[in-house]
């Protein structure tokens, strides 16, 4: 191969590789790049650590709620904010499903982040949220869980492991199926 051939090769390979990479990235994102904000991934996302980080949260009723004391129950942690439209949209759904599972071994905890107290109170009032809610004022819990957007949900099974993590709002059907699945696992574990 002559000098020309070498130069041709040395130019063509990186250029074509770069173009191929950019094409791949565009195909992957459907030609639409990620714009403002990072929560382009909606739905179920990977759980980074299955051990839930314990916390103590002061609820709106001024009670101390400690996560580790709920061991044995299926727990859903919901990080939300009163100014976030999807959170407001799913608030009735959450309340309704919570009521449906009343009496079963299920607990919901709402953790409001990046919010103001009066706004949180009026939100809880407006949607008559039945489950305990608290404000994570300095973001300690949110950071501990690596929350990158709202709403974001973590499901903890009765053995105290984080098993599922969801970004974005959720409909009632989906929520029920997850809870049922976790309760079934719990029953299996209890019987077996």
């Amino acid at each position: 191969m002559g000098k020309r051939g070498w130069i041709l090769l040395g130019t063509a390979v990186p250029v074509l590789a770069l173009l191929a990479l950019l094409t791949w990235a565009s195909v992957k994102s459907g030609g639409v790049p990620g714009g403002f904000g990072v929560n382009t991934e909606f739905g179920q996302v990977e759980v980074l650590s299955d051990t839930p980080r314990d916390f103590s949260l002061e609820t709106l009723d001024s009670e101390q709620l400690v996560l580790s004391q709920l061991r044995g129950k299926v727990v859903m942690l919901d990080f939300w904010s009163s100014w976030c439209p999807p959170c407001r949209a799913e608030a009735p759904v959450l309340s309704q499903v919570y009521a449906e599972y009343d009496g079963k071994s299920v607990e919901f905890i709402g953790i409001s982040i990046w919010d103001r107290k009066d706004a949180v109170l009026s939100h809880v009032d407006e949607y008559s949220v039945p489950y305990p809610n608290g404000i994570d004022g300095d973001g300690r819990i949110a950071i501990d869980y690596g929350v990158t957007g709202i709403p974001e949900k973590f499901f903890i099974d009765s053995d105290g492991r984080v098993v599922k993590r969801f970004v974005g709002p959720m409909n009632a059907g989906r929520l029920r199926s997850i809870l049922d699945e976790l309760l079934a696992d719990h029953a299996k574990g209890a019987s077996g």
Partner: peptide, 20 residues
């Protein structure tokens, strides 16, 4: 900053960055 595009928590002007 996990919720901002390409900004460090030093630069970002959102609450999460301040908390971090």
């Amino acid at each position: 900053c996990p919720v901002c595009p390409a900004e460090s928590i030093d630069q970002a002007q959102v609450e999460l960055a301040r908390q971090m």
